[in-house]
Design a protein around this nucleic acid. Sequence first.
RNA 1: GGAGAGGUGGCCGAGUCCGGUUGAAGGCGCUCCCCUGCUAAGGGAGUAAGGGUUAACAGCUCUUCGUGGGUUCAAAUCCCACCCUCUCCGCCA
Length: 449
Amino acid sequence: MLEIHKIRSHPDKVAAALARRGDDGLALGEVIKLDSERLQRIHDRDAARQKINELSRQVRKLRQSNRVAEAESIQLESRQLGQVEQLHNHRIAELDEAIHDLLLHVPNTPAPDCPTGQTEADNPVLRTHRAARGGTSRENQSLACEEPAFREYQRVPHWEFAVEMGILDLERAAKISGAMFAMFRGAGAVLARALVSFGLDRNSDLYEEVLPPSLVRRDTMVRTGHLPKFVDDAYEIARDDLWPIPTGEVPLTSLCEDEILAEEDLPMRFMAATPCYRREAGSAGRDTRGLLRVHEFQKVEILAYATAEQAAPLHDELLERAEGAVRDLGLDYRIIDICTGDLGNSSARTFDVEVYAPGADRWLECSSVSWFGDYQARRANIRYRPSQGRGTHFVHTLNGSAVAVPRLWAAIVETYRQPGNEIAVPEVLRPYMGGLKVISVNVPPSSAT
RNA sequence: GGAGAGGUGGCCGAGUCCGGUUGAAGGCGCUCCCCUGCUAAGGGAGUAAGGGUUAACAGCUCUUCGUGGGUUCAAAUCCCACCCUCUCCGCCA
């Protein structure tokens, strides 16, 4: 949420920044209006309270010296002031709620260097990386999807051959849970697990591994900005008012909720492998084939709390972590600079990593590396005490996916497909798969005889 | 799920029965100063956050003792609801 002081003192600047992402500024105008009444009310309420406190002290003295009649007349006066205070308080509570509601829906201001644009189509491609396959790896070449960089046998979508091989079981997943759920089997399941371990181990040098709860309170979802605006995208366990997390970002961002950290401890880096649950309500019928879009998946999230000064280099670091994982897996990918119009609600700047799946012939978003400024920290109330000077500041938060299982899984099996329904295992994953070099047709282990 | 005990500042811990100079004793920690050959010890001062006003992190003022309501002239203290922690019982991977 945006800072009310900033809105108060520079309404035009804030409005201009929001306009870059296509925000109409109506909510902002309303906030400014309500805020000025709120300030006036607070002033009047405090004055009433001050008088009450004063009168109470008089009452005490009078009663101690047994001047009951005088005390009672002052009590009467104070009681009336109490009613005035009440009225102000009720109105202030209303205003607070209204302003809060509005602010929850006002998106973050984009970073100054975030490219201006309206839709996805306006996102500049920062760079494209093509993995070395028998040759040298190439950067920044125009990579048309139909360019014959891939063999014919790599041009088969995973939902065809992986299902045939028995390592991906979409039909039974649908039987159990419905459309857009996936089930991995045999070496396919091991590959999914290997990706998670690979993602964690790759970042364990700097990032503390966390295994958080994946059901959280409503309040936690609000504080990370996933509610109330995206209520339709979240699953809800109504009976207990618990919400399955759509991303590990939710528990990790709330990890230090309501805490005041020491500047010396920043930046703090965390990572977590969690299940992610998404209703994908707005996406019915889109990208529904195979693993392109599923309701539940595993993801390794990396996240950092930082000071404002540390945020920019950390953003680069997180991007390099996300990018490095895909590069190490030997996949083709590109980095997208998300323009103002396509930016997530809470984000000030986002880079997407998109991996190329040759069989599906699609670029698949596998990581969004975002810098949120103090927008999230303001909601979650995460501050730090500067080592010099008094007071506290809100931290900056940054996060991204280190490894998102299904889409990387899809890109891997398509990219590494060999003639004759076999899949080579990427070098970096072999240690996590018992040294397995090639995945063949899944033959379930028979019961021991 | 049942029964009970608790939640006070950076930490520990008084105060709660019997409401009022208690934003909160005392201690620890931390910061600064003094003293002291070094060390140890000692002496003094300071040490919450947020809101409003303001040029001001000067002053004034309001709020905050788990959270939210209520009673009262006045609430850490009385009443109600909720959250969390701990102990015992039950259940359970």
